[in-house]
Write a protein that binds this DNA or RNA. Structure first.
Lengths: 217, 217
DNA sequence: CCTTATTTTGAACGGTCGTTCAACTTAAGA
DNA sequence: TCTTAAGTTGAACGACCGTTCAAAATAAGG
């Protein structure tokens, strides 16, 4: 899967970096909208305004390109979530609602902020989660942060079985993704602040996770 | 999208019905495993043991075939859910947990029962829900039953905003799908009964929906 | 300013895709 | 039994796929 790259002898030019960014952004949109097989290298190249061969030059094979796109966005989001967690911990002792807030809020605010790249990323995550083909990619990009939050929650509920904490995490993530990419099914977005919907989502997740962690069975 | 078909002049033979079923089942597996674009007519034909042209004869175009497969399974599941709801209503006044149980349990038991066709259907639903391309299909196949359950829940919480009930329904569905097709992320299935996991899922959904329906905001 | 690593082009390669269709086989209905 | 609608085959169509590569253009580093 991964071959070690030849050592660079020169710094990339500004133009090359811009081209690379255009290719990755275009690929992100097409992969998100049409899935891995549905997105074609030629469509991506045309949207980025380059020749097809250049996509391979900057992104490698189609699989490597997909991996690259998911990993770069996941890394940035992971950083934001961990930062939110540390900030919250510095203010007050963590509770369940705060922990889930730190996980859910960063992404939902990015996606609802209107940046099409983060909306696309949500669809990408949905594709990756739905297809067992991407199991390794999910494990690499999503699991470390998820494990971190699972550990925080488990520390609050010492008696809860580990599997139950993990289940709550998975359910919460799925509800978060549905909140973003199935918003049209919930109804037309309210013209005012979207924060109401976000708070409602976090309340749903918190109550659900709390219920299964404190149940007797 | 839909042309009116020529009137049949003869009943289909038993062999033809079997062939048709083999084609639809094979298509269901490939669409579920690889998505719409990832599944090829030739793979489906080979798995069904027929020539490629026969797939078009029984299933129409690729889009029509996809629609056919989702609709037939959705119709059957919808019937089971409504039956469960009516049975429960006959026994005792409905409450939130019972309503959600009637929605979630029929599918999860089918999928966890080991029938690969129902496991495949779960992945199909995930694909349909993740891709805006299938918005109309989702509206046709999923919304009527969802609306029915939303109405039942709304009747229990007269003061709750309609959008909040719909949000709870969408979150619950997403958690249910995650429970089935992301079970590997929650952990190895317990060797004993899977009903424990199902009860936990229903408890999660019930507590979450209840929380957002009774919140002040 | 040179040298040359890097970026970019343009075209081509072998395959696979969804779809179509004439010809052949099967079996329903009179 | 006979007619013929329906089922099935096998091959072909044009289009698009991911990938490769020699050659040209660009620009970093000495």
């Amino acid at each position: 899967m991964f071959v070690l790259e030849k050592q660079r002898q020169r710094a990339p030019s500004a133009r090359s970096l811009q081209t690379r960014a255009r290719i990755l952004d275009a690929a992100e949109q097409f992969f998100a909208a049409r899935g891995f097989e549905g997105a074609s290298i030629r469509d991506i190249a045309k949207a980025a305004g380059v020749q097809g061969g250049l996509v391979a030059h900057h992104g490698g094979s189609k699989e490597e390109l997909f991996h690259l796109i998911v990993a770069r966005r996941a890394g940035e989001l992971s950083r934001l979530r961990i930062e939110a967690l540390e900030t919250a911990r510095a203010c007050a002792p963590l509770n369940l609602g705060t922990i889930l807030d730190c996980f859910v809020r960063p992404y939902v605010e990015l996606a609802q902020g209107g940046d099409p790249r983060w909306v696309a990323y949500g669809r990408l995550v949905a594709h990756v989660s739905a297809d067992p083909r991407w199991r390794d990619l999910a494990a690499e990009c999503f699991d470390p942060t998820a494990q971190r939050f699972i550990a925080e929650i488990a520390a609050l509920f010492p008696g809860a079985p580990p599997g139950t904490v993990a289940a709550g995490q998975v359910y919460a993530v799925s509800a978060m993704l549905a909140h973003v990419h199935s918003a049209w099914r919930i109804g037309a977005l309210s013209p005012g602040s979207d924060a109401v919907g976000l708070d409602r989502l976090i309340a749903f997740c918190t109550a659900g996770v709390y219920a299964i962690l404190t149940s007797d069975t």
